[in-house]
Amino acid sequence: MIKEEIIIAGFGGQGVLSMGKILAYSGVMQGLEVSWMPSYGPEMRGGTANVTVILSDRPISSPISHDFDTAIILNQQSMDKFEPMVKPGGVLIYDPNGITRTPERQDIQVYSIDATAEAARSGNMRVFNTMILGGYLKVKPILTFDYVIAGLAKSLPERLHKLLPANEAAIRQGMELIRPR
């Protein structure tokens, strides 16, 4: 049985919502039920943004959750807010860039991925979020790689399809980059 409830949270502009979109589209390509529920409050306008994505092989009841299987955290505010909402035994993935207090919980599996630094080194900050996504896919291999590539293509408008190879490479890179606490 597949039931994965994910929160992705960070600053607006970090590609939080689009990372969620890739996950959701990948789930659809894989034949799963999906829901994608964004925050759309004033935080959308420059502050923090988050999205809840649920992947399941059965109909999804609540698209709202406060108990996540996985949290992907990209800024300190989101760390403070969502670390407590990870289920015991769940996964927390974070990018250490800008994080002043690393996760403290011992009952969850914590991974870090240095995607900001790596993307900056590679000179293409736009693949930052797909790199993080790669890290997630490594830790939680629910979605198979081919469906993710298909989902990526679905989630991007056609005029941006020239960016697909760079993103695919970033996903692979992220898989290598992710480290347990």
Binding site: V28, E33, S35, W36, M37, P38, Y40, I60, P63
Partner: peptide, 10 residues
């Protein structure tokens, strides 16, 4: 409401 309006589903 805003949940149904803003969320994506199949």
């Amino acid at each position: 409401d805003g949940v149904i309006g803003q969320m994506m589903e199949k």
